[in-house]
Amino acid sequence: MTGGTILEAREVRKVFPLRGAARRGQELVAVDAVSFALPRGGALAIVGESGSGKTTLARMIVGLEAPTSGEIWFDGSPRQYSRRAAHRRQQAREIQMVFQDPYSSLDPRQSATQCLEELLRLHFTFTAEQIEERIAELGGQVGLGQAEMNAKPERLSGGQRQRVAIARALAVQPQVLVFDEALSALDVSVQAQLLNTLSDIKDRSDLTYVFVSHDLAVVRQITEQVLVMQRGHVVETGATAQVLSAPQHPYTRLLRSSVPGPGWRPKRLDHEPSSREPQDHGEAN
């Protein structure tokens, strides 16, 4: 492991026991033997459809779930898992997350300023002026003006809310940001703005990104490495440009060919997953 690797997964596996009388004793392997190494300042995409395990992997990276086996290494040491708030607070300064739904990922009763203030007071012992300064700095980083920072979420658009969510994630100066489909709920023009903002933020700091997404075009735009997942397994991995322009695995090829673009026509396939995949799994905290 080189000094430049900030995030590493080693044979990470997550198994959920299934609930319900009919399925007792069975288990769901959500993530199976996933490994990757992400250098500092890099950007990794985790691509897959529903049931691929990408969200579970993201949750393990950020510390919400503990792997059943295997380890996640951050900056040269393995990550410990604990529900204790103090432990989480310390880990908060390592890896943070931005969520998909702009409408429920912010406390509706708090403006951005109030939210950031609360977090800054939780983590640091700043004076009031220092807090104000830091909040203004964060607002500038994500492209939000004073008025927007002081407004309640209900007055903000989806794009603005995601900016607040990004500011919240950046507030404690983490080293890795995990985006769990964070741009999927946004309009095309807003997505483009946010992609630019995220590029800017990354260029000016040595932040590392992990992008969980189903949108291959977005992934191509902002990431350098990609992990393609299907039903918990990594089916292909490599440089984003390489994998997307010349996919090797049949599933990657299928994904690639399903993306609408100029001249694209939809295709019917021979096989089709008939019923829902079992979604029921153990409680996560």
Partner: peptide, 26 residues
């Protein structure tokens, strides 16, 4: 179950504080 509570959890905010300062007011 809303993501903002998960976000606060990741931030390391204690359960009591989240319950009283965030969930209860909502």
């Amino acid at each position: 179950s809303l993501p903002y509570v998960t976000a606060l959890t990741i931030q390391g905010m204690g359960g009591l504080r989240i319950a009283l300062r965030h969930i209860l007011p909502n």
